[in-house]
Design a protein around this nucleic acid. Structure first.
Length: 455
RNA sequence: GGAGAGGUCGCAUAGUUGGUCUAGUGCGCUGGUCUUGAAAACCGGUACGUCGCAAGAUGUCGAGGGUUCGAAUCCCUCCCUCUCCGCCA
């Protein structure tokens, strides 16, 4: 949520944001401001009336004489219907205003490139094991960087045609989507054996790293009331992406939703709190299952475990001061890069354009993609987002600055490891010509073995 | 599933014949006095929102209605939290 004062004073900036984010038609800023000024007018009148009423009440309290008292009471009675009328108008307009405010998006940061769709995202870095970062002139927009895809798998000859993760997974009996379809329906999976061990190994590696970077672990709830989801702006826009839990047998009568990411749960941890300036930035990570309906993606990515209704994710969340946003943003995606480099996985980084910034709260976002040899393309694995004060304003997360003034905090989030997709990337990039999986070197001390095979 | 208690401006509490509640007190935090320094003691300040340059005004005592000239206080509806028993990972 943006500050209504800012919207009043800068309507053109907001209109531009709506347009640049390709959200025209979702909210009419002029209409919003019209209702806002109506509300302000009513509030002003109400304030006056209430003042009169309170003054009279003060007099009534002290006056002992009965007839004099009656006069005052009568006088006050006249005010009552006026107050009620205005209050009624106000309670009519307030929800309309609130609803409209929910559809005002955050403003893209100044360094976000303009774009009308994902094709306008800008590639800012690409890294290939053995080579390192590609030169700036070799990266650019999608078609350009495709010329610089990795030529060969680490453990297979150049002429070897890479298999996809599902074929490999089924052969090695480590991925099973047939039985999960029977048990839970489409878009679920069983991950077992060596691959499951790899999942824990990956966690071991990454958790050790992020703890050394001063991220504190937290185990959050994954069923939330809607407040938390509105707070992070996953609602109302993404409401169709989350599962609502049938609550007939729950003690609480409020609706509960399964998280699509631990982000709402983690930031709601700070909801309605005033944070300690000296402890900022607050850096935490959580590892939870995530649940998504994938409405709108039906028929897309149906093969394997790339897009499933339930997946595990390690997420990094930071609450900080405004002047810490930039350095934290960088720190977050450097952590992701560290992970990919440790695993020697080819990856590239995109700066998202205005049209593709993710959700409403997002002011700036970068996406990380890892090479998938079977697709001869990259798969999106991670994104780092700065929402500035947008979420904090809705969640009411504040701190007192050096002068004691109350300020809204800034929130940033990053995917640490999306387990499913990381496993896909490892399986595919580390296959050998026998269709076995070599365990990445950095993970071997955690897995205790160096090969996933059929024997 | 059964029974009970309760939701007050960081935390803990006071506040139930409606008007000195513009919400008291303790703790915590904070400024000051004192002190070589600290502690203690004492004095002061400490919820949030809105309007306003300010003075100030106004709203919020879980939420929403209602009664009343006037509601933290009375009535109604709803929500939430906790405790005990039962069942159970």
């Amino acid at each position: 949520m943006l500050d209504i004062k800012f919207i009043r004073e800068n309507p053109e900036i907001i209109k531009k944001a709506v347009k640049d984010k390709q959200l025209s038609g979702t909210v009419d800023i002029d209409e919003l401001l019209k209702i806002d000024s109506e509300i302000r007018e009513i509030e002003l009148k109400l304030n006056d009336l209430r003042q009169k009423r309170n003054d009279l009440n003060d007099k009534i309290k002290t006056v002992k004489d009965a007839s004099e008292r009656d006069v005052l009471i009568k006088e006050n009675s006249v005010l009552k219907p006026q107050v009620q009328e205005l209050e009624a108008k106000l309670s009519e307009l307030a929800p309309i205003f609130d609803e409209k405010m929910l559809w005002v998006p955050n403003i893209p940061a100044s360094d976000v490139p303009y774009g009308e769709g994902e094709d306008d995202n800008v590639e800012i870095a690409a890294w290939i094991p053995g080579i390192g970062y590609l030169d700036a002139d070799k990266i650019g927009k999608g078609s350009v960087s495709k010329a610089h895809m990795p030529q060969k798998l680490k453990y297979a000859p150049a002429e070897y045609e890479a298999l996809d993760h599902l074929t490999l997974g089924e052969r090695l009996d480590i991925i099973d989507v047939k039985q999960s379809a029977k048990v839970s329906g489409s878009r679920f999976c069983y991950i077992s054996g060596g691959l499951a061990v790899l999942q824990y190994a990956l966690l071991d590696l990454v958790i050790k790293k992020i703890i050394s970077e001063k991220y504190a672990p937290i185990v959050p709830p994954v069923l939330l009331k809607e407040d938390a989801l509105y707070g992070t702006s996953h609602f109302p826009q993404g409401k169709d992406q989350v599962y609502k839990v049938e609550n007939k047998y729950l003690e609480s009568k409020e609706e509960l939703f399964l998280v699509g990411s631990s982000e709402p749960s983690m930031f709601a941890y700070y909801m309605d709190k005033t944070l300690d300036l000296n402890k900022m930035p607050y850096k935490k990570f959580a590892y939870t299952p995530c649940f998504r309906t994938e409405v709108g993606s039906w028929g897309k990515d149906v093969k394997g475990i790339k897009r499933v209704h339930q997946f595990d994710k390690l997420e990094l969340n930071v609450v900080c001061k405004e002047d810490q946003e930039e350095s934290i943003f960088e720190e977050l995606y450097k952590i992701d890069e560290w992970i990919y480099q440790q695993l020697e996985l080819p990856y590239r980084i995109w700066k998202k354009c205005t049209a593709d910034l993710g959700y409403y709260a997002s002011a700036k976002q970068v996406d990380m993609e890892i090479w998938l040899p079977s697709q001869k393309n990259y798969i999106e694995v991670s994104s780092v987002t700065n929402t500035k004060q947008f979420q904090a304003r809705r969640l009411n997360i504040r701190y007192k600055d050096e002068n004691g003034a109350s300020k809204y905090a800034s929130t940033l989030n990053a995917t640490g490891i999306p387990i499913g997709r990381m496993l896909i990337a490892i399986v595919e990039n580390y296959q050998n010509e026998k269709g076995e999986i070599i365990v990445p070197e950095v993970l071997r001390k955690y897995t205790g073995f160096d090969l996933i095979s059929n024997v």
